[in-house]
């Protein structure tokens, strides 16, 4: 698809160093947040360049696989244990998939476009596509896109019973990126292409089709990681951006989701 944008910043939860009280000064907002909500909102703020940075964002687009799972589970357990009596509303309202997006908006009373994709591990790319469309239509100039996923012991146990987790990779965490329609002084990379393929292609063909004659680096995901969690492709995207920051001219990201969906994204260094 002929749409492009610029990656201004990308932050993973591991890189967040600021204190939570600094990033989320409102104690009222903080106290109901589960672990994953804190992680997602803090990563988003850090990515936006601090709480004030949220003011400059004109679209907030998030992706998650199972959402705020510990809150959902807590409400479900209480409901069953207490036979549908005397239920605390907090975990129910926090369990909604768009809670993280909503809380980011609420922090600075940002009234902009705010949507959440819940489409297994394709959600992050769906969110990127949404951002590209908004910028192509001049509806947005600086978009915050992020993925977050939470794991709980019960979910781990259930997926183990289903035969997942042979490698035990961690699928929990948050990744947020700010994208701009025009290159800014701090732009790291250009997202110059995003294609959805209806079937798998070989890595060789992928290189041939998307390298454009440059010295391209190909990044692909581990098939073991295909499944439910958009934070996995988001981490791959972050790795691609890092490679550009370290000097690569072009990075091709080939995300195999299995079945009928494969995504190819091309990142280029600025001014190339």
């Amino acid at each position: 698809m002929d749409m492009e944008c610029f990656v201004e910043n990308i932050v993973t939860d591991k890189q967040v160093t600021s204190d939570i009280k600094e990033l989320i000064p409102d104690a009222g907002l903080r106290r109901r947040m589960s672990r994953i909500l804190k992680s997602a909102v803090m990563t988003a703020i850090e990515c936006a360049g601090g709480t004030d940075g949220i003011d400059g964002i004109d679209a907030i687009i998030t992706a998650t696989g199972l959402g705020c799972l510990s809150d959902s589970e807590r409400f479900l357990r209480n409901m069953i244990a207490d036979s549908e009596q005397l239920l605390n509303p907090a975990p129910f309202i926090q369990s909604t998939f768009n809670t993280a997006g909503g809380q980011i908006a609420m922090l600075r009373h940002n009234h902009c476009y705010n949507v959440t994709y819940v489409n297994r591990d394709c959600g992050f790319e769906d969110a990127l596509l949404d951002a590209l469309m908004r910028m192509a239509d001049s509806q947005s100039r600086r978009v915050l896109v992020g993925a977050f996923d939470e794991q709980t012991p019960s979910q781990y146990r259930i997926m183990e019973r289903m035969g997942f987790w042979r490698h035990g990779t961690c699928r929990e965490g948050s990744v947020f990126t700010t994208l701009t329609a025009m290159p800014t002084d701090s732009a790291i990379a250009e997202l110059s292409c995003m294609d959805f393929l209806s079937g798998p292609i070989t890595e060789e063909n992928c290189m041939k089709s998307y390298s454009g004659g440059d010295d391209a680096v190909l990044l692909t995901n581990d098939m073991e990681d295909v499944g439910l969690f958009p934070v996995v492709p988001a981490r791959l995207f972050a790795e691609g951006v890092r490679k550009i920051a370290e000097g690569a001219e072009r990075v091709i990201i080939y995300d195999r989701h299995g079945g009928d969906r494969q995504t190819v994204m091309v990142l280029k260094c600025i001014g190339h």
Binding site: L66, G67, V115, T116, V118, N119, C122
Partner: peptide, 29 residues
Amino acid sequence: VRMHDCGAGTDAIARYCGIEGYRTTISTA
């Protein structure tokens, strides 16, 4: 629990309605 996640429902709808193109799921309450 096989169909717990939101995307699983969309996949089933696409499969049983013969929809083969781009598909995604949105959840904003």
